[in-house]
Computed example of a mutant assay.
Amino acid sequence: METVRKNKTFLIDTLSTDASIVLQHVQSDDIILQRDYKNLNHPNYTDEKIIINLLDTVMGRGDETCRKFLKVLEKQELQEIFPQLKNHFTPETSHERRESAKATGEVDEYKMSSVPRGVCLIINNMDFGRIKDYRNGSEKDEGVYGSFHPQSL
């Protein structure tokens, strides 16, 4: 999903030149359903809007769907129609990257190697106004990750 997200602007610019061909490929590869195809291919949508909605749909369905979508972008037929894809999504590069990750047991995740790493804010919601909506166990997160109390400023 990270690859699609990072390249979203590029993909919108590139694929918006012919959204219909992209929709046909993602539908034929079972990345979207017939219903999705009809919703995305709305007559009042611009090609750009179609691609934006397609990318949002693909990312909303998780990593496996994103991987399938990237595989479609590696197809020679699509790369001939959208030559800019060759610079970003080549079968050899993507395949090697996946095989390398499988061989080392790596999982697609956020790398924690930059210095400084930055700050992470965890909002610990426990009380939602009704007793039955109280989130039990939330205090355990606070114990594990620490806490910040604004009144201590």
Rank of each mutant, 00 (worst) to 15 (best):
K6L: 14
K6P: 01
K8I: 06
K8P: 05
D13W: 07
S16V: 02
S20F: 09
V22R: 04
V22T: 01
Q24P: 03
H25E: 14
H25I: 06
S28R: 13
S28G: 04
D29N: 13
L33M: 14
L33I: 10
Q34Y: 13
Q34R: 12
R35F: 12
D36N: 08
Y37C: 01
K38N: 13
N39M: 11
L40P: 02
L40N: 02
L40E: 00
H42T: 07
P43V: 04
Y45P: 01
D47C: 06
E48T: 10
I50Q: 05
I52F: 08
L54F: 03
V58E: 03
M59I: 11
G60F: 02
G60C: 03
R61L: 04
D63M: 12
D63T: 15
E64S: 13
C66P: 03
C66H: 01
F69E: 04
K71P: 00
K71R: 12
V72T: 07
E74Y: 05
Q76Y: 10
L78Q: 04
Q79Y: 06
I81T: 14
I81E: 11
I81H: 12
I81V: 14
F82T: 01
P83M: 02
Q84D: 14
K86G: 02
H88C: 08
H88Q: 14
E92N: 11
S94Y: 13
E96L: 15
R97E: 11
R98A: 08
A103V: 09
G105D: 05
E106T: 09
V107M: 08
V107W: 06
D108I: 15
D108V: 15
E109M: 11
Y110E: 15
M112F: 12
V115M: 00
R117C: 08
V119C: 07
I122F: 09
I122S: 02
I123P: 02
N124R: 05
N125Y: 14
N125K: 09
M126K: 12
D127R: 06
G129C: 04
G129N: 04
R130Q: 11
I131Q: 09
K132T: 11
D133L: 11
D133I: 05
Y134A: 08
Y134R: 14
Y134E: 09
R135T: 05
R135W: 01
N136P: 05
N136A: 15
S138A: 15
K140Q: 10
D141M: 14
G143K: 13
G143C: 08
V144H: 09
P150G: 00
Q151L: 10
S152P: 01
S152K: 10
